[in-house]
Design a binder for these strands. Sequence first.
DNA 1: AAGTGGTCTAGACCACTCA
DNA 2: GAGTGGTCTAGACCACTTG
Lengths: 234, 234
Amino acid sequence: MFKRALYLQVRDVLVERIAAGAWKPGAAIPNEVELAREFGVSPGTMRKALDLMEAMRLLTRRQGRGTFVNDPSSAELTARFSNVRNPDGASIVEEVKTGEVAEWAVSDVECLRLHLSKDDRVYRLSRKRLHQGRAYMIEDVSMPVALFPGLAGEQSSSPGLTELAGQYGVLLGKAEERVSVKDAPLGVAEALGIALGSPVLVLDRVVFALDGRPAEWRMGWCHISDGHYLAEMK
Amino acid sequence: MFKRALYLQVRDVLVERIAAGAWKPGAAIPNEVELAREFGVSPGTMRKALDLMEAMRLLTRRQGRGTFVNDPSSAELTARFSNVRNPDGASIVEEVKTGEVAEWAVSDVECLRLHLSKDDRVYRLSRKRLHQGRAYMIEDVSMPVALFPGLAGEQSSSPGLTELAGQYGVLLGKAEERVSVKDAPLGVAEALGIALGSPVLVLDRVVFALDGRPAEWRMGWCHISDGHYLAEMK
DNA sequence: AAGTGGTCTAGACCACTCA
DNA sequence: GAGTGGTCTAGACCACTTG
């Protein structure tokens, strides 16, 4: 018989509580000893559970103040998966134009990237990112219907992934991005205002939820004259 | 008066012990209670220090067996900073041709990337990476003389950074890589066997030691027909 | 059976924040 | 001064590996 560590069980309950919205972003949660009493575990065990949640970027603890639920749609957490940078290394301050959301049957690539079956469905939309009035990236985005049910009907122009994730109780974990160089096809070249066949960075990214389910697949075609893509490795 | 946490002080001593080679890669270190006794701290404090070192990839602990020093030149730790991948996502099995090592005065870019002063000196070398007999990347590498004193004299064809770091007691931490697209200049095009002006991925990478000092700057020009650069974000 | 790391407990005291 | 998280202690017992 397999016995899951107590601090992991405690963490999972607390994570679920945040995903369900029982504790709102920005709010303080009960202090460590109180939580330990509620769960019937020792303070050390509760502390270890909270340590893990801080590492998952769900909580922020401040000595003398308390423990707070992070806002997943905060600038910091939203920028976490955007690696396009200015020459000086700063994140690009940008304007985003989002197209309409529509529901479709999955394509083969979507099956692969989003770990779906042939008969699953996805929402698709496209975006254009501008910097100083010039388009520098266009994106095709796909999200599983299963994770964001009823998305298409609700809002014609969708907010970003992090806002959606917050609304639907999907907690985001890691992302994987495949970067390559391709010649710009016609639609891309027109949208970015560059010559047909100019080389562009192709950014093929999947964002995963904390439980490992893929939450978003995005193909980006990016033309930055002076900037770069920044990868950090630990 | 500022008091550094005990477990951090303990960790620093242990890290220094590994850097100095007092504990060899692959060897087991004393068990937790013995180490705790030696340092005059409680087992819990020693455990926290060891936890941190495991997160720094310096140690591996195995329940029932013991705690072992990681080999920094192992395949796993060496591949950590190489993000070029095959279409199937696997790391490219490769052959490397390394040029001669020579000592130079720093250039402006080296000053910037390696955090050096105008009058510091660096070792430079170049490499060519082959896959199935074809060159897919050429690299210009610079390393501070201060971190690897006497490198040029010792060996004409240098081993990789991870081996050097092991020899010189430099423990590697994180890396930052700037990725962009450029037209291949003459030397690059010739070396890679592509047309002059073909677009290539430019990989501008700095590897940092655990203490934050830059240990290596590498400019790579990479042409992969079907593969990609893989970035993971946590 | 002996030895290791992994988990869990139940406290104590310190450092910081804020009213 | 009251309340919070951060550190530290000194044990106990469990799960796993090896001889």
